Amino acid sequence: MQGIAALQPYVIAAFLLWAALMKLLSRRMRSQAGRTALARLFGPARAVPLLRLVAVAELAVAGVLLAPPSSPWDGTAAAVLSTGFLAYLAYSARAVPDSSCGCLGAHGRPVEWRSFARAGLLLALSVLAVTAGPYPIEPLAVVIAAAEVLALLALSPELDRHWLTPSRQLLVRLTRPLAVREPELIPLETSLRLLYRSPAYCTAAAHLSSDIQDFWDEDGLRYASYAARGRTAVFSIPLYGGAPADVRVALVEEPALRVM
């Protein structure tokens, strides 16, 4: 436990340094500061200076945490700052529900439960850091510290566009939750919409003399037959994920059988 506590100042300091730099270096801070609760509380003109002041406080606490020797006051300072974060988030969620917290610079994500969870985790780590000292670092402590860093990242809504959104898009591409697995469940109208947009249908349309006469599914394809002036036009339409260019047509002599 002592080895775990010894790493907490570094975890907290890394997050505070990151948050401070995002506030100080963001080019969009001035335009986005008006959307934070600070603008509602102190006025839009004071929002940017106050955010910069918060960044300075974060840098100061991070410096105290990183500077040797370790002291219980280091963790206490971090705990006070984390408590302030929680109080500010509570005010933001109550007074200006659609406002952003400005925690990580100019990101405009509104306050949500993850924002509270992140501040709560920082407070818990700060309390643990009060007991930090020059203890030996164990491998388990390093693993736990890495997990804490990942948890702070996952609890940062401002970072969703960097990892959560791409992960969801990849999952949708891999699982295709809206894809119909059974051919008989795919409506005929779905296949016909693909057919009517295909170059094959546009080429053969002048020869067709009837509406669809028959259709059947086989080997991932849906076949549709049309009368075509003494012959039969048979179209093959992909059932899954096909494009109009994948549709094929064959003109066969009567009698019309299932021939491609």
Rank of each mutant, 00 (worst) to 15 (best):
A119Y: 06
S198K: 08
W18M: 10
A77Q: 00
L123H: 06
M260F: 04
A60D: 00
P183M: 03
R46K: 09
R197F: 00
A90E: 08
S26P: 01
S126C: 07
R197P: 00
C103G: 08
A147R: 04
A227M: 14
V180R: 13
R181W: 09
Y10E: 01
W216T: 06
E138I: 02
F215W: 15
F85H: 11
P199A: 02
L123M: 09
V172W: 04
L150D: 01
G43E: 09
A37C: 08
Y91I: 12
C202Q: 09
P72M: 04
D98V: 01
A78G: 10
V54Y: 05
A206V: 07
L152D: 13
L122K: 08
A95G: 01
P166R: 09
S198H: 07
T165G: 01
M29L: 15
L24T: 07
A141R: 10
G34P: 02
A224T: 07
S26K: 00
Y223I: 04
E254Q: 14
Y10N: 01
Q169G: 06
M1D: 10
I137F: 04
R229C: 02
A147V: 11
R118S: 13
S156Y: 05
H162V: 12
L159K: 03
A204V: 14
L188H: 06
S100P: 02
L24C: 05
P166G: 08
V180S: 04
V127S: 00
L251T: 03
Q8L: 15
C101R: 03
L89V: 07
L65V: 03
G102P: 05
P49L: 05
R30A: 15
R258V: 03
L257W: 09
A141Q: 10
S126I: 05
L171Q: 09
V61Y: 07
P110A: 10
A106D: 15
F215P: 00
E218D: 09
P44H: 02
A39I: 09
P136G: 02
R109Q: 14
L125I: 10
V64R: 05
R52T: 01
E112T: 05
L123Q: 01
A256W: 06
S191I: 03
W18S: 12
R52L: 13
L153C: 13
L16A: 12
A250C: 06
V61L: 08
S236A: 15
L122N: 10
L50I: 14
A147S: 13
V259A: 04
V64K: 00
